[in-house]
């Protein structure tokens, strides 16, 4: 056979086309056959993070545990079932000092306190901001209170620098020497939890509107009389003097509406 002229135009074009087609098929084949495994990996990584936020760290079989404990909600939050108790998991996204930070925080059924938290980052300073991934920092959130009234009061503060109206229940100590990353965590918490405040309220509120439930109002406020509980304690009158026409303390809430219904 005559020697192929490898420098001719026709040959070059044909060669290039054949090469492209072969490579394209090969890569498509590899990508599609491995896609399932890869997606499972990515999903498993996220599941592991979500499980960490309910204090289930280092699970051997992440997929099984996740399937057992977590359900996904339509609004992007997750509901966890831990030993019969329900927790709501809220996703967090924010900015640290050098790059993005993110995480998940789980809320107890009372809608007020933290059950667990998980944080991760892309490029914070090793030994300083990067310590937000360490367990000691994350478990420091367990049991902390989130809301003061309708505002998110939970925050990460340098020792001694928290606002004076916040009790220790709202404050998590910042990582020493990582002021800016800690500020980033605080901003992220306050912004993202506020976005899901309604979801948390709904989670807390639950189905029953029984008023035999524990008093929902704070100090100096009255329990609601019969029918429904108000959505927040701000709806209760703070004293019977405000209503004038009410007879007994227990009926304060009812007297604020002329038609005897609560808001």
């Amino acid at each position: 056979m005559a020697k192929l002229n490898t420098n001719s135009n026709v040959y070059t074009i044909v060669y290039a086309s054949v090469m492209v087609i072969i490579v394209a098929f090969l890569l498509a084949f590899v990508a599609s056959s491995l896609k399932a495994t890869q997606d499972a990996n990515v999903a498993r990584d996220v599941k592991g993070q979500i499980l960490s936020s309910v204090n289930l760290r280092g699970e051997a079989d992440v997929d099984a545990k996740y399937a057992e404990v977590i359900t996904e909600n339509a609004d992007g939050t997750f509901t966890a079932n831990i030993n019969g108790e329900q927790k709501l998991i809220v996703p967090l996204k924010g900015a640290g000092l050098w790059g993005p930070i993110w995480g998940y925080i789980s809320v107890n059924k009372d809608g007020e306190t933290v059950y667990g938290a998980f944080f991760n980052h892309e490029g914070e300073t090793a030994g300083l901001g990067a310590r937000i991934v360490e367990e000691w920092f994350q478990t420091g959130f367990n049991g902390k209170k989130i809301f003061m009234g309708d505002e998110v009061a939970l925050g990460v503060y340098k020792a001694g620098k928290a606002p004076s109206n916040l009790s220790a229940d709202y404050v998590v100590d910042a990582v020493t020497g990582a002021t800016l990353t800690s500020d980033g965590v605080r901003n992220m918490l306050q912004k993202c939890i506020a976005q899901y405040a309604d979801a948390i309220k709904a989670f807390k509120g639950g189905e029953s509107k029984s008023c035999d439930a524990k008093p929902c109002c704070g100090e100096g406020q009255c329990e609601m009389a019969d029918s429904c509980c108000a959505d927040s304690c701000a709806d209760c009158a703070s004293s019977c003097d405000e209503c004038g026409a009410c007879k007994a303390e227990k009926e304060c809430g009812a007297c604020c509406e002329s038609d005897n219904t609560n808001k």
């Binding site: 030994g127 020493t176 020497g177």
Partner: peptide
């Protein structure tokens, strides 16, 4: 050793 060089302590 950033923890030794800055911060408050």
């Amino acid at each position: 050793y950033p923890a030794m060089m800055s911060g408050d302590k």
